[in-house]
C-alpha cells in the first residue's frame, strides 16, 4: 500500500536518512526499530509531509505523496501520531478529537468520538478537560484516538511508549492490536524493540540513517537487535 524507495532526508549538511526503502502492505503492522538518533523521527515526519525528502520516492498505491504538504498527506489517509504526542494543550479533549476528524463529515465525527471513548474509556471521563491537563498516558491515548479520528489507511506512531509506565504501555498496545485487527495498517517507530516486535508482523532495523536488517518479527533475531541497539 505504501512504498518508500531510496528515501534520503538531509538537514543542511547533516544526512538523517541515507536512501532507505520500506514497504507496508494493506492491513499489515510493521515496525521500524532503532536507537536514539537513528532517523526514526525524520522518517516519520518525512512520510507525514512535515519534511521534504531530498531524494527518493514515497508512493501511496499509485499516488506519489513524497513532498506533498502534510495536510494533503493526512487527507490521503496517512496519519502520524507524532513523537511527544503533540496534544493541543489549550483545546479540550473533545476538541482535540474533533480536530482529528477535521476532514470527516460532521455526523461521522460524532460517531467516531463514541468509538474512541469505547477504545479509551478514560478519555470519555475527561472530554471537557484541557488536553494539556491530562497525564502522559492519557495524552498518548488522546493522540492515538485523535489520529484514528481521521479514519487513516496507515496509522504511523512515533515512540508511543516513550516515558510511560509499563501498565499504561500495555493499555496502549492492546488498543493498537485492536486497531490493527480492524484492518488499519500500522507503521510503528520504536526504540523498545521487544515491545515493537510484540505487536508487529515485520520489522526494519534502522541504524544511523540506514536499514541494516529487516524481516518477519520472529526472524529479526534478538542477537541482531542487541548488536545494534545495545
Amino acid at each position: 500500500m505504501i512504498k518508500i524507495e531510496d528515501l534520503v532526508v538531509r538537514y543542511g549538511a547533516v544526512v538523517a536518512l541515507r536512501g532507505i526503502s520500506i514497504e507496508v502492505e494493506a492491513g499489515e503492522a510493521v515496525s521500524v526499530i532503532g536507537p536514539n538518533g537513528a532517523g526514526k523521527t525524520s522518517l516519520m515526519r518525512c512520510l507525514a509531509g512535515l519534511i521534504k525528502p531530498s531524494a527518493g520516492s514515497i508512493m501511496l498505491d499509485a499516488q506519489r505523496i513524497g513532498g506533498k504538504a502534510a495536510h494533503i498527506v493526512s487527507r490521503q489517509g496517512v496519519v502520524l501520531v507524532p513523537e511527544g504526542r503533540a496534544i493541543l494543550a489549550p483545546l479540550s479533549v473533545k476538541q482535540n478529537l474533533q480536530m482529528g476528524g477535521y476532514n470527516q463529515p460532521k455526523a461521522e465525527v460524532k460517531a467516531s468520538i463514541d468509538d474512541m471513548i469505547a477504545l479509551f474509556p478514560v478519555l470519555g471521563r475527561r472530554l471537557d478537560s484541557a488536553g494539556g491537563l491530562l497525564s502522559g498516558g492519557e495524552q498518548q491515548m488522546l493522540a492515538i484516538a485523535r489520529g484514528l479520528m481521521a479514519k487513516p489507511r496507515l496509522l504511523m506512531l512515533d515512540e508511543p511508549s516513550m516515558g510511560l509506565a509499563p501498565k499504561v504501555v500495555d493499555n496502549i498496545l492492546d488498543a493498537l492490536r485492536l486497531v490493527a485487527g480492524l484492518g488499519t495498517s500500522i507503521l510503528l517507530a520504536e526504540q523498545n524493540a521487544s515491545l515493537a516486535l510484540d505487536i508487529t508482523e515485520r520489522a526494519y532495523v534502522l541504524v544511523n540513517g540506514e536499514i541494516v536488517a529487516s524481516g518477519a518479527a520472529a526472524e529479526v533475531g534478538e542477537d541482531l537487535l542487541e548488536r545494534y541497539l545495545s
Binding site: L50, H71, S74, R75, L88, L91, Q98, Y102
Partner: peptide, 24 residues
C-alpha cells in the same frame, strides 16, 4: 465553531494542525 477551533489548533502548533489535515 470548527474553523475557529482549527485556528486555535494551528496557532498552538502549525505542524500538529497540518498533521490533522488542516491547511494552515
Amino acid at each position: 465553531t470548527k474553523s475557529g477551533t482549527a485556528v486555535r489548533a494551528v496557532a498552538y502548533s502549525r505542524d500538529t494542525g497540518e498533521l490533522l489535515g488542516i491547511n494552515s
